[in-house]
Simulated assay, not measured.
Amino acid sequence: MSRIRTLADPDHLPALDRRYAVERPALGLGPADHPPRILLLYGSLRETSYSRLATEEAARLLRCFGAEPRIFDPSDLPFPEQVKGDDHPAVHELRELSLWSEGQVWCSPERHGQVTGLMKVEVDHLPLSIGARRPTQGRTLAVMQVSGGSQSFSSVNTLRLLGRWMRMVTIPNQSSVAMAFKEFENGRMRPSPYYDRIVDVMEELVRFTVLLRPHVDQFTDSYSERKEEAAKVEARLSLDKAL
């Protein structure tokens, strides 16, 4: 079963600049350029998961802004090292989606003042490199959280820390939805300042992703790695001469 959800277009946003949805050059993209590819992760498996519902709202907005969103379903994701070599279909799909992406959205509930274990498991399954390929480095990241009580920023602060460890470019804006059970009805988010903030965050994520796209190689090229590669080349040449 596919873990990618398909979503309908969002309701009309009265202050939306139509150029995002109609004239792609407003994003700085030419007609032949592919839409920004955004992977979205959420951190709860509850039947009524507010982090999932918020993530789905974010995906609707991303599509409206001209991006291609894909939501990963973590319902059968094992713990790291639970399966030998992490050889599990859900792990493979998560990593391939991360490699596919140019930007990501991470949305976690706040539990005991922190991100959920599920959210951490998803991030822990993303290595810094898979051979010469990097699943996260140089990608943009937007962070969001939902809370059962008053507004808090503990989860988004942790997600920012994780994004830094994963060498991602985390955008300045963020979303924290307080008393999330009051903000959703029939699977959709009510109009509110909380919803408007998610619109702002997704708009900013698309902008940063498009601006960064021509320069991604600059963010995945480092002195220490060039030095290590040069040493390997020199060692191979020395071995060839010895033979």
Rank of each mutant, 00 (worst) to 15 (best):
A90F: 13
T220W: 01
N173T: 14
R63M: 03
L141H: 05
V22L: 14
L40N: 07
S129E: 12
T55I: 00
L118V: 06
L53A: 04
H34W: 14
D9R: 07
N157M: 11
D196E: 15
E93G: 02
V91A: 06
R190E: 13
P10H: 12
L99C: 03
I71C: 06
A235L: 06
V199G: 11
A67P: 04
G103E: 03
H125C: 12
D87K: 14
H125S: 07
E23I: 12
D9F: 13
L40K: 04
S152Y: 05
P80A: 08
T6D: 10
G148S: 07
G28I: 08
E81P: 10
S152W: 11
S238N: 11
M166F: 04
V123R: 05
E110L: 03
G28A: 09
V199K: 14
R139C: 01
P109Y: 11
R95E: 04
M189L: 08
P191T: 09
Q145M: 11
I171C: 06
T48I: 14
C64G: 02
H34I: 08
L77W: 12
S101L: 01
Y50E: 14
L27N: 09
F72K: 04
E122N: 02
P80F: 14
K227E: 13
V199E: 15
R190P: 10
H92S: 11
E56G: 00
R37V: 00
V91F: 15
R95G: 03
D240N: 06
L128P: 00
S224K: 13
S192W: 11
R207T: 13
V123P: 05
M202E: 12
R236W: 15
M119G: 06
F153A: 07
R207E: 15
Q145F: 07
P31Y: 12
W165K: 03
V206T: 10
R111L: 11
L162D: 02
E110G: 01
W100R: 01
K182H: 08
A178K: 06
Q151L: 13
N157E: 12
S108V: 05
L212P: 01
R63C: 01
P36K: 08
K120F: 11
V177W: 14
V216Y: 00
G117S: 10
E96G: 02
D196L: 08
L162E: 03
